[in-house]
């Protein structure tokens, strides 16, 4: 494991045994998250972005389970002499004390749906303070003060009053701010943001991104930013991984991804971004077809049946392996083999 990496995921495989058949949600993911960096994970719905994130905290919805692979975390938690050591999260039992300490203590998460992320029956303050009281040795009053400061920090006015209010009294944007506040309250070393802006309107989205950028500067946490929106990635991420059907097809710096894509899927995604400079009458480029049914993974390269550069007899037979283009830029495409 690299010195600078906070998390390293190795060959992670997650499957969902369902009545209709088994869905291979993650098919061998390799991903590392360096300290203090923002890693963007991009892909269409159902490609396994959220499952990757949830695997780290072991909160995959049932009946999903980790079949194979390691999720290595560099942490001081659970170590005898308060030194940093490496723990394989995938080996921890979901109800073990150590995993519970790591949840929110080291890694916290902001979810896509601010409207349902909070329980309607408990005040926002109760739910935020709960996180702090669970992980830090503080009194209720201290927790309350910290929660007020945090709400203030994420831009909720009149925080001392708002703390006692219930989720239905907040707008979606405000709830997501509170959620981000709750995620940062234990000062975690990593924040997972699972499409945190998708369900908000565009102006709020922009505010939320600004907020995240500020917080990243102030708190110095690593951020795993999951989205299907390349535009958002361009604004916030240092490095990007492109996912397709449970595999990472290309990863590299944001620069690489936007200006020197190797994988045809990445190219299609980038081309599909509408540009103001384009002439008026040009139709939006789309990727033909749609993501195949999870029960019927295509043979060979999973993208071959939608790929504009498909090589018959090659792509539908051989499974591509990642090729290194230097400087951490990798792509799994048979064009280069």
């Amino acid at each position: 494991m690299n010195e600078n990496d906070l998390i390293e995921i190795k060959n992670l495989r997650v499957s969902f045994p369902l009545d209709e058949g088994t869905v291979q949600a993650l098919d061998g993911i390799d991903l590392s998250i360096p300290k203090g960096k923002v890693i963007g994970i991009v892909g269409e719905s159902g490609c396994g972005k959220s499952i990757t994130a949830r695997s780290i905290l072991q909160i995959i919805p049932p009946p999903g389970k980790i079949d194979q692979g390691e999720i290595l975390l560099r942490t001081k938690l659970g170590s005898m002499n308060d030194d940093e050591h490496i723990i394989d999260l995938a080996k921890l039992k979901p109800d073990s004390d150590l995993l519970r300490q790591i949840r929110w203590g080291e890694i916290s998460m902001v979810f896509q749906e601010p409207m349902t992320s909070f329980s309607a029956y408990h005040s926002l303050g109760d739910q935020i303070m709960e996180a702090l009281l669970m992980h830090k040795d503080v009194s209720k009053e201290e927790a309350r003060q910290a929660a007020i400061e945090m709400l203030d920090r994420v831009g909720i006015p009149n925080a001392a009053v708002r703390l006692n209010q219930f989720p239905h009294e907040f707008s979606g944007g405000m709830r997501q701010r509170a959620m981000i506040g709750m995620a940062l309250i234990c000062n975690p070393s990593m924040l997972i943001a699972d499409e945190p802006t998708t369900s908000l309107d565009v102006t709020i989205q922009a505010q939320m991104l600004d907020l995240m950028k500020d917080l990243r500067r102030d708190f110095g946490s690593s951020i795993m930013f999951i989205t299907h929106n390349l535009g958002v990635i361009a604004q916030i991420a240092d490095e990007v991984s492109i996912m397709y059907l449970g595999k990472i097809v290309e990863q590299g710096t944001t620069m690489d991804i936007f200006h020197d894509q190797k994988h045809p899927y990445t190219s299609s995604l980038v081309e599909a971004i509408p540009k103001i400079s384009d002439a008026r009458k040009k139709r939006l480029t789309t990727i033909r077809g749609s993501v195949p049914s999870p029960f019927e993974r295509p043979s060979g390269c999973p993208f071959h049946n939608r790929c504009p550069k498909m090589m018959p007899g090659v792509c539908d037979v051989k499974v591509p392996t990642p090729i290194d283009f230097g400087n951490g830029h990798k792509a799994a495409c048979l064009l280069y083999e």
Binding site: I59, W104, T116, M134
Partner: peptide, 15 residues
């Protein structure tokens, strides 16, 4: 299976 329960679990609240 509601999200807020998953959130609580992610927060490290014992089952």
């Amino acid at each position: 299976n509601q999200l807020y329960v998953t959130v609580a679990r992610a927060k490290g609240v014992p089952e």
